[in-house]
Amino acid sequence: MTALSFPSENLTRTGNLNLTPVPPIPEGERKGLTKKEVAADHPTWCPGCGDFSVLALYFKLIEKRKMHHEKITTVAGIGCSSRFPYFVQAHGAHFIHGRALPFATGVSLSRPDLHVFVFGGDGDAFSIGGNHFTHTARKNVKLTYCVMDNNVYGLTKNQTSPTSPLGYKSKTDVWGSGDRPVNPMKQAICAGATFVARTTHTNPNHVLQMMEAAMDHDGFSFIECLSECVEFYPGAFDGANPRKGGQFPEVPKDHDVTDEYAAYKLAEDLMPGKFGIFYKVNRPTKNANEAKIVSTNREKFAALPDWQILQKNFDRMK
């Protein structure tokens, strides 16, 4: 009975990986990455798709912040935008539709040494993944979530998305959509996100600024980045593009980012809406809360090896 058919010898890493190890490089001797080194597959997006700029700015962020390959963790669900991880030369996971956030939470909580970036679409975030959005925000899991909002389902070819404006004509609403669209900023603020920002792919400097601020935030940082689907919803964000006769109104300088109601008010109008950081507060992260539970529990067992902690329990069950 007690003879295990599968003893654990020789199993290292997640499996029994047996590769040629290479010596570590001292931190000081490592250079930052060039764009070439961080680009992987050529993106499969349609020419002109807004998602290209988001990717380019992610590369910029990696360059600017001198991140090393192995510390970059990119996670996504399913959608055009969610193909993101394939285009980044780094550890990445392309998970299932709508569930990127809980997957990324598993990485974030078990690997506090990594900062996880999650990219995805509006359907992924607010339709199939809507509940996960709420709960990841509420738990304040340390990670950055960038929703590339094109107000449409791109990958499945033009169905109504939860952010499609009223009257939008799609294959599933040939008469025009009648469901009130989700307001991502309001959604994020109400759910308890601790960093909520809005940007658009046509303003690269602003996108980079938001990404940097999000990455530096200790908690769940959410960016809504308008990203035009030139194939199915061209011109959707012209109103927010000064070059197309629109406007780019930034969050007023005197806005108090810790004022939840003020942030909510800023989110009132949808197009062009405001751009910048709407809300940013510090609240203990899930990561920190769990770490605290661990350290108080560990104190009681100071130097005991794991088997002795378990033995103590078992001795009480004799």
């Binding site: 890493r13 590769l19 570590p24 080194e37 192995e70 030369q89 392309h94 690997r111």
Partner: peptide, 22 residues
């Protein structure tokens, strides 16, 4: 049998794997 590298592991060749459902 497949083996995965945990994220955080450096690959000297500079070619990084993706885990995927496709």
């Amino acid at each position: 049998i497949t083996r995965h590298l945990a994220p955080g592991t450096r690959v000297a060749s500079g070619k990084y794997p993706v885990v995927t459902g496709l």
